[in-house]
């Protein structure tokens, strides 16, 4: 899945954040970008902490405190080598953060005055409990959580895109076709439900898949700064999910 236009790689949330870090003037756009990134990717970090056998409440505090430091920019100059990609950066710096905090045996309380990400504790714990603990390394599990988060956001964006085009019902009926090839009768049934021909339905499914691929790419693009990184990050995502 090559990026669409390698020549002009647009500014991404992550590149905004990184650029703002070297500037003396606080940048509102960069702050918003970072907030959004945090909002999107807190769960993999939380789950990572939980797998270190940190209890739920402390894991939450740890994650919130991490974001607070991130937002106050005091973590951003750490782990310079890793900061090209958000995922590698976060996990690298988060590991250091856990180590620091554990050594101090002291948890930062949330916020430091900043409005932090909305943290649905109960839901996070629910997801975490549902997760596997199949003996894989925590870093691998983090990557998988991350990939699933990307996929989830891509689906949300696709759903919104369809709703905007007035194709909400089409999306709702066809979303299951995105993941799996369906047998003739199911195709026929869906076509009947939507009042279109089977050929038109297949074309619609194809388009939906195409748009999903673009959304996936767009999501990942927000966490990198160059086309090469985008490609590498996409490859990593696929490898993570398709492993075995």
């Amino acid at each position: 899945m090559p990026p669409d236009s390698p020549a002009a790689f647009p500014e991404t949330r992550w590149s905004l954040v990184l650029r703002a870090q070297t500037s003396a003037v606080p940048d509102e756009r960069a702050r918003l970008a970072l907030d959004e990134l945090c909002a999107n990717y807190w769960y993999p970090l939380y789950a990572f902490a939980r797998r270190r056998e940190i209890p739920p409440a402390e894991a939450e505090d740890l994650t919130q405190g991490f974001f607070a430091l991130l937002v106050s920019r005091s973590l951003l100059d750490k782990a310079d080598r890793e900061r090209g990609r958000l995922r590698s950066f976060l996990i690298g710096v988060f590991k250091l953060h856990i180590a620091d905090e554990t050594r101090r045996e002291h948890r930062l309380r949330r916020g430091g005055g900043h409005a932090l990400v909305s943290f649905e504790h109960a839901q996070a714990e629910e997801w975490f409990v549902a997760e596997t603990a199949d003996g894989a390394a925590p870093e691998q599990l983090f990557d998988r959580d991350w990939a699933e988060t990307v996929v989830d956001h891509a689906m949300r964006a696709l759903e919104e895109e369809c709703a905007q085009k007035g194709k909400g019902p089409l999306f709702a009926r066809l979303r299951e076709f995105l993941s799996w090839e369906h047998a003739e009768p199911e195709v026929a049934a869906a076509a009947r439900d939507l009042g279109i021909t089977e050929g038109a339905l297949r074309v619609a499914v194809h388009r939906l898949r195409h748009n999903f691929r673009q959304q996936l790419q767009a999501q990942v693009a927000q966490t990198v700064t160059t086309p090469d990184e985008l490609q590498a990050e996409l490859d990593h995502l696929f490898r993570t999910l398709l492993r075995e």
């Binding site: 997801w127 689906m155 949300r156 995105l178 993941s179 799996w180 999903f212 691929r213 996936l216």
Partner: peptide, 16 residues
């Protein structure tokens, strides 16, 4: 997850 409940992320990406 909220927006992809019931979807298989692996199959989604594989078919994409």
């Amino acid at each position: 997850r909220a927006s992809s409940t019931g979807d298989c992320p692996r199959c989604l990406v594989a078919s994409a």
